[in-house]
């Protein structure tokens, strides 16, 4: 700290004046606004090429996308709708088994079974979570945590869909490039579509429910319908991830209902910063490779993982992306007092 000086923060000249109209005066400012987006999109699109000689990390990249989808779903429900959903693995499992069934019995190709399983699975998940929608906070969270456990037990007990062995011989993708770009492009499209939705009028209604649900009802809007709609979007993302996994692993089984799919997205959202969807994706980009790299630590992996998480949360509680975007849009300079 310099004596006689203080740090001053100034917002950069570019401020969003209206919803979609930027007050821009030059190409420099446009590129300034677009740069982070371009970095994200470009990075995702180039990554498979850059990782060409590291097939293992190409696989990690796919897992990043899977968790990015799940983190977006979590962030959307938690920070836009106000529902804390611990049922990421419910979505993955339903999507995964759905795609496997469609492929095995109806011989759908991956490009058909994934979207159909995502839509059908989302409808299935929404239907079963519908009775819980009036619940708030921890009660909704607990029920969503129980559903995947219940599904596992049911499948085990009745030996459904191959029982504990799962369903094997699901068709995979013919071409590894198609396999990678299909997921990467879908992830990007869903990210920007969901961000778009959030600033549309329906997005405001969704946010209104989180702010003050009674006011939304007093505006003549059925909040159960809107919540169900939001839940459908979120479970669509999760089921899409699950359906994709079934085709990459060429297998669907009980581990698709594993707790990881519910917990890691929450960690990713916290680390990256909730409320923007982008933060959730950034969190997944950081956490998934990190947890892979930590495999070297063997049994201590989870310890180091937890330590890093704790440190990030304690030091930058607002989440990395929120912190960075604040820094990015402000100058800091020393001024004399």
């Amino acid at each position: 700290m310099k004596t006689g000086m203080r740090k001053e923060r100034i917002d950069r000249g570019i401020k969003v004046r209206s919803d979609s109209i930027y007050a821009l005066s030059s190409w420099r400012e446009i590129s300034y606004l677009m740069a982070p987006r371009a970095l994200l999109v470009g990075g995702f699109l180039l990554a498979p090429l850059i990782l060409y000689f590291f097939p293992y990390w190409q696989k990690v990249l796919l897992i990043v996308c899977i968790y990015a989808l799940l983190s977006m779903a979590f962030d959307f429900l938690a920070n836009y709708v106000g529902l804390v959903c611990l049922g990421g693995s419910f979505f993955v499992g339903v999507g995964g088994y759905g795609a496997a069934l469609l492929n095995k019995y109806l011989h759908f190709s991956p490009f058909l079974s994934i979207p159909v399983a995502a839509l059908g699975g989302a409808a299935f998940c929404t239907f079963f979570l519908l009775p819980c929608l009036p619940l708030r906070g921890v009660y909704f969270a607990i029920i969503t945590l129980m559903y995947p456990l219940m599904m596992t037990r049911i499948i085990e007990a009745f030996e459904l869909f191959g029982g504990t062995n799962g369903m094997m011989d699901i068709s995979g993708f013919a071409n590894p490039w198609v396999e990678q770009y299909f997921l990467i492009i879908s992830t990007l499209v869903f990210l920007f579509a969901l961000r778009r939705l959030a600033v549309e009028d329906i997005g405001l209604v969704i946010k209104g429910i989180k702010d003050n649900d009674q006011s939304v009802r007093a505006s003549g809007i059925n909040i159960t319908v809107v919540k169900a709609q939001a839940l459908f979007y979120a479970s669509f993302l999760g089921c899409f991830a699950g359906a994709y996994l079934a085709h990459t692993y060429m297998w669907a089984g009980l581990s698709m209902f594993a707790l990881d799919f519910s917990i890691i997205p929450i960690a990713a959202t916290v680390v990256g910063g909730g409320g923007s969807l982008l933060g959730a994706v950034v969190g997944a980009i950081l956490l998934v490779p990190l947890s892979e790299a930590l495999r070297a630590f063997g049994p201590l992996r989870i310890v180091s993982y937890s330590l890093i998480l704790t440190v990030v949360i304690v030091i930058k509680g607002e989440g990395l992306l929120n912190y960075l975007s604040r820094k990015y849009s402000q100058f800091e300079r020393w001024v004399e007092i």
């Binding site: 209604v205 209104g208 702010d211 006011s215 505006s219 003549g220 809007i221």
Partner: peptide, 16 residues
């Protein structure tokens, strides 16, 4: 809706 600007508060009833 505390987290929205005042005028955005009215978009919700207008949308209903």
């Amino acid at each position: 809706y505390s987290s929205m600007p005042a005028y955005k508060n009215l978009i919700i009833p207008l949308y209903g």
